[in-house]
Design a protein around this nucleic acid. Structure first.
Length: 425
RNA sequence: GUGGUCGUAGCUCAGCUGGUAGAGCGUCAGUUUGUGGUACUGAAAGUCGCGGGUUCGAGCCCCGUCGGUCACCCCA
């Protein structure tokens, strides 16, 4: 065993999996940019106050933050999510609204790790600040939906709810509190604890004993103000117009305290309940204001990279890309020819790899095979004397041939084009 | 944070009631010293997570600890 391993909940992402991560983020960037979103890159750490504004009562803030005091006596925290940072950035820079941004990168939460749940975990997401239009809600959801489609995921369920206006939410919370207190005996001990902290979140319970009580609980929909009801109606209509299927789930309560009106979550159909929340988001108010900005409407979502990838594994889509190089150079004269030829190929925009340590030809050919390259360039003493190289197709039935050293690039280019054509045919 | 479970070569695992470690895959090297993907031969590679204890003797038993995993909690 090595003396050091990564800390719990941290991981090394190695190739080819790392290529999959990069592609994941690239696809997300494409989808977001196609809708006019620009990338925002907030810092990995901030004054802890930025995150505390998100919700004084949530576990994310109270128990799970990675924080420390820096050499300037500042109380700093590693970001547990990015929404707060984006709002802080908005309050600080005051860009034109609506401000449409996306982000990708790691977040940190001090939790007990388990499958699909790490202390350093990546999310991609978008936020829009400064607009309250229900069609914006639809656009935001549609972007996530399109992203899942691009990945190839089929079994994603969109759960939709509205928490109403802050007042509606408060009224509902009070009603819920009353109801649960009347049925305290039937609630699980865990839920009773949750009830004391935040009645809304009792609805999240997955415990079987709570099911009966939950089924009889009052519904948020009875508490909507006219505005909230109209907004929610418009969102549903818009989703229907785009052909995006959704399920209303009145028990859908997001973890952070600042949400209002539209909330949504994406669930993976193939995953266990512990990690089936692929992503979620909603509309929020007051966050920018609490960070020193003007009153600003906001909406956004965050999607977990790990869980989404787990869902991809289960559905057999979005596999890790195989690292492939165009050409593998086999040199049996000591390696200098390979040095020159790979450099020449790379300068010409042709990716090329080679073996080192002067291995046997057989070993080098093995390397060529493993590299995935469609062609090998072989150089031995015969070739060097004759001023040629051997161009050896590795994938098809074509025979190898000698080409003049000076025509290397044009011959390889031609050969690669032909290989590409055969591959698609 | 609480509870269950697991931890043996790079990977996946075997190792019966305790007697100082094995397989497959992979890696490397050979099988006519210029040619890969198949086959054959061989080799390297493990302080059996770590630390204590019981025992003549522990990978197998006990305790602790670290890590993974599952459930709860929470969430992505």
């Amino acid at each position: 065993m090595p003396e050091f391993q990564h800390s719990p909940g941290m991981r090394d992402i190695l190739p080819p999996e790392s290529g999959r991560w990069r592609r994941f983020q690239a696809v997300f960037a494409e989808v977001a940019e196609a809708a006019g979103y620009g990338e925002v890159m907030p810092p990995l750490m901030e004054d802890i106050g930025v995150f505390q504004r998100v919700g004084e009562h949530t576990d994310v803030v109270t128990k799970e933050m990675y924080d420390f005091v820096d050499k300037g006596e500042r109380h700093i925290a590693l970001r547990p999510e990015q929404t707060a940072s984006v709002c802080r950035a908005f309050a600080q820079h005051r860009p034109l609204t609506p401000w449409k941004v996306y982000y990708a990168g790691p977040n940190f939460r001090y939790e007990k790790p388990q499958r699909g749940r790490y202390r350093q975990f990546d999310q991609v997401g978008i936020e829009v600040l400064g607009a309250d239009d229900p069609y914006l809600d639809v656009e935001v959801i549609a972007i996530a939906w399109e992203f899942y489609k691009r990945l190839g995921l089929q079994q994603v369920t969109l759960l939709l709810n509205s928490l109403g206006e802050p007042q509606d939410r408060a009224d509902y919370t009070a009603a819920l509190q009353d109801y649960f207190e009347q049925h305290l005996e039937a609630l699980s001990p865990e839920s009773r604890i949750t009830l004391a902290k935040n009645p809304l979140r009792v609805l999240d319970s997955k415990r079987a004993v709570d099911a009966a009580v939950l089924a009889g609980a009052p519904h948020i929909s009875k508490f909507y103000s006219a505005d909230a009801a109209a907004h929610f109606e418009a969102v549903q209509q818009g989703l229907n117009d785009l052909g995006i299927p959704f399920t209303i789930d009145t028990s859908l309560v997001r973890g952070l305290d600042y949400y209002r009106r539209t909330t949504f979550e994406f669930q993976g159909g193939t995953l266990d309940s512990a990690q089936n929340a692929l992503g979620g988001g909603g509309r929020y108010d007051g966050l920018v204001e609490s960070l020193g900005g003007p009153p600003t409407h906001g909406i956004g979502f965050a999607l977990g990279l790990d869980r989404t990838l787990l869902a991809c594994d289960d559905e057999g889509v979005f596999a890790a890309p195989q690292a492939v190089v165009d050409v593998f150079v086999v040199d049996t004269t000591g390696g200098r020819e390979a040095l020159l030829i790979t450099a020449e190929l790379r300068s010409a925009g042709i990716s090329a790899d080679r073996a080192f340590e002067n291995r046997s030809m057989k070993s080098q050919m093995k390397g060529a095979d493993r590299s995935g390259a469609p062609i090998a360039i072989i150089v031995g003493s015969n070739e060097v004397e004759a001023g040629v190289v051997t161009l050896r197709p590795l994938r098809g039935e074509d025979l190898q041939r000698l080409v003049p050293r000076g025509e290397l690039i044009s011959e390889v280019t031609q050969s690669l084009e032909q290989a590409a054509k055969e591959a698609t045919a």
